[in-house]
Design a protein around this nucleic acid. Sequence first.
DNA 1: AACATAAATGTAAGCGCTTTCATTTGGTTT
DNA 2: AAACCAAATGAAAGCGCTTACATTTATGTT
Lengths: 332, 332
Amino acid sequence: MATIYQVSELAGVSLATVSRVMNGGTRVSEKTREKVTKAMETLNYRPSSIARSLASNCSNSVGILVSELHGPIYGAMMSGIEKQLRTAGKHVIIAAGHSDADSEKDGIEFLIDRNCDALILHVEAVSDEYLIELAKTQHAFILINRYIPQIADNCISLNNRRGGYLATKALLENGHRDIAYISGPLWKMDASDRYFGHQEALSEFGITCNDALLSEGNFQEEGGNECMLALLDKNIPFSAVVCANDEMAAGAMQAARDRGMAVPNDISVMGFDNVLLAQYMYPKLSTVNYPVQDMGKMAASWILKNIYQANQPEISHVFEPELVWRDSVISL
Amino acid sequence: MATIYQVSELAGVSLATVSRVMNGGTRVSEKTREKVTKAMETLNYRPSSIARSLASNCSNSVGILVSELHGPIYGAMMSGIEKQLRTAGKHVIIAAGHSDADSEKDGIEFLIDRNCDALILHVEAVSDEYLIELAKTQHAFILINRYIPQIADNCISLNNRRGGYLATKALLENGHRDIAYISGPLWKMDASDRYFGHQEALSEFGITCNDALLSEGNFQEEGGNECMLALLDKNIPFSAVVCANDEMAAGAMQAARDRGMAVPNDISVMGFDNVLLAQYMYPKLSTVNYPVQDMGKMAASWILKNIYQANQPEISHVFEPELVWRDSVISL
DNA sequence: AACATAAATGTAAGCGCTTTCATTTGGTTT
DNA sequence: AAACCAAATGAAAGCGCTTACATTTATGTT
């Protein structure tokens, strides 16, 4: 591997000059620039990013912490981030936090120790206080899918409440009045926000929310299945169920069918997230779109703009969900 | 940020000694080890991985190149890799290749330039020759889901042919005789291997493979949909269709239903991969399991063993698929 | 007690770059 | 031609570590 020194030798200039043509900042005469460029080519020179990082105190890498590396939401998110960052020549170091506070802290420390210039965090378990504290250190980070008022500038989030509202309102507008709700773990902000939105829509239609029609799930198919069964067992009639994410909707559908009910004719099902799976399901799932890939891109833009001084379009911090109509809901 | 120098000062020892207690290799007296450890704690010292990399010429990072960051297969794969590597204190740099030769080469160069100690590659578009050539350089890498005889030791792959064989054989054993096939892009090794397996099973049952019953798709839902439609339009009767992956199976099911056919009663559908989606579908998809997460783990083990001299269990290079019975296939 | 030997520690030279500051070069001005 | 100034280039000091080698200290041997 050729070093900068060998290039400078071949080109007959000093190290500093080679560095200059690499980084393009200061002026170098056309003649020497050419000499150096040619030397770099003949030696097939690749600058060492490590050495560069050490000398410049900038690693050109950003750390990403997601709950899981698999799963449609995180996949789309990372995809958005990588695309954006890669074209800017930054690289992406990835770790998983597994929705566990210790594991998330571990992950954050790991990434910081790796000299990431900035972090993009999708953390669920770690406390607000921890993050507020973290923001006071010199470690730059942006939070995805979480909103903490004290550090609002570091947050990019979905208007989950409005999403929940939209989902339920769509059902209401189509004549449904008895609507069950399968939530995510309510200690998670997004889960409770979505549920609040649901309640809001109900009350807007003058319906008092029946706690018996709420079942708390785990954001997974199996949980949706169990919740649906539990709901059905209560023998309280309902014509529709809104699920706090698409996976649970899949489970709920399954459960309904296992009990001999047809979807959507006997019961309408509404999802949330609009992951790929939603269109694969049968019937295709009506759901609420969560533009997570765009949010990933935006997070990357924020970093490019705030950490690397690249110029980037305006940063939006709150994204709006949208209703996606498909086949799992009927009009009463 | 404290440096090693400050630690050495506080502990009253030399740089080298601090380095020794950090790296644990050579012997240090218990007394000084304690002094140093305490100094590190009071200073909240974190070694700079960058400086360490530069000095030791080892970055403790491994690069991963997958076709896409989203998608169930890649997600599971990365998840397996990260889990394994993270516990070993290595970190994971990720890039996407988008199934395009130039983009894949770019990605590889990018990762190499990033001083990754080794690479894990899931590449589809780049030629065998390129990879064979790459193996001759000093850059260590392992290929996932691809088999190249000349560098077999660098490959971890699925026995795709056997998978295709299993899928079709299962159909044959259940009385199906007229079996259509929706393949992936046949220039991709895995796609053609799976199809070969299909043919093999047919011929084992004394059935000549009818080319008219093959339709080449793109491994995506929409492709599966189109292929199924095309197949149906030929008016050649068939009682089952095997699809080269689960997404296409979802599309095919949809198409069949759009034409008024019931799955599995009018037509049986067999998938491949056993991604999460397969259990969410309705009816639940019978498919062939592709243990991609395990393969990811194995790739990581290979690297830990061969690059970082960690001791690891025996490396398997070829994984075997397994049939997964669910509800999308009936017995004739 | 004198010496040999091994263990513990220190010294200092890098690793491949960036960057500040000093020096040289070449073009203008008078 | 002397004087000046900006542009181009070079010299050298780090960045925070690792590591070969040198030195010191402790341990054991006779």
